[in-house]
Amino acid sequence: MVDPVPVPAPVPSGAPAPDPTLRSATAPGPQPGPPAPPNPAAALSLRGLWKRFGQKIAVAGIDLDVPAGSFYGLVGPNGAGKTTTLSMATGLLRPDAGTAHVHGTDLWADPAAGKRQLGVLPDGVRLFDRLTGAQLVTYAGLLRGMDRDTVAERTAELLAALDLAKDATTFVVDYSAGMTKKIALATALIHAPRTLVLDEPFEAVDPVSAANIRDILAGYVASGGTVVVSSHVMDLVQRMCDHVAVVAGGHVLAAGTVDEVRGDQSLEDRFVELVGGRQSTEGLAWLRSS
C-alpha cells in the first residue's frame, strides 16, 4: 500500500525549484531502483511510467496512486506530460517502461480486462464525426459489447443529461467545440465504467453545461466511481476534486488530497510556487496605455 506522497507543511517560500522531497520519483532513468509494488486497491496505480519521443523525455518516471472512489485532479503547465501520462494509463500509448494497474489489473498485460473498467475522454483526437450524436454514442456502446436495448436507453438519458437531446440527429461534424466535448464525454460514460479518465473535459464547454457535467461526475463519485480529470483551471480543481497531483517536466511534484497539497494557500498559488516560472512584471513598459 503506497499512500499518496504527503506534502510537508512548511514549504520554503520563494523557492521556484521543486523540492526533491516532494517527488515520488526523481531519478532520471527508467525503473529508478526497486519501485514500490502497485497498489491493488487503487483505481489507478502507476509505477515508473516513462516515455520519450525522440530527444524529448515527455514522462520521466511517474508513480501515482488514484484511490478508488476519489475525484482526482491532474494539474500541470503546458507540456508537463499530463496527456502522455493519461494516454499511458488508459491504453492509448505504450510506455517505454513502467506499469499501469486499473483496479489491480495490469493494463498493458491484459488490455481487454483493463479497458473494460475504464471510460476515456482523450484530448486532441477526432471523433467519428460523420455519425449523428445518437449514432456515435450508440456506436461506443455497441463497441463495448452492450446489448441494443441498454444502449438505446442509456444513449437517450445521456443525451438528455448533457443537453444534447435536440441535437441527437445532427452530424457531429456540425457540432460546436463544446458540444463535441460533451458528446465525447457521453461515449466515455455509456458503459458505466468503474473509473473515468477525462483529459481537459471542460475546455470550450459553456458554464451551464460545465455545471451539469460537474453534477454528473460528483454523483458518479458519490456512488463509488472514480474520476480523474486533467485541467488548467486551478479554481475548478480546488472546488471539484478531493485529490490532486501536480505534474511538471514529466515528474510528479506533489500529490495527495487537495488540502495536503495546497496547505494554507490557494491551489493556484501553491501550483505556481511548485512549478515556478512566474515572470516579474517589470518589462513591457510600452504596453501600459497610460
Binding site: P111, A112, R126, L127, A140, L143
Partner: peptide
C-alpha cells in the same frame, strides 16, 4: 484518423 482512438480505448 485519430477517431481510431475510440476503438483503442474501447478495447
Amino acid at each position: 484518423h485519430t477517431a481510431f482512438a475510440l476503438h483503442v480505448s474501447s478495447g
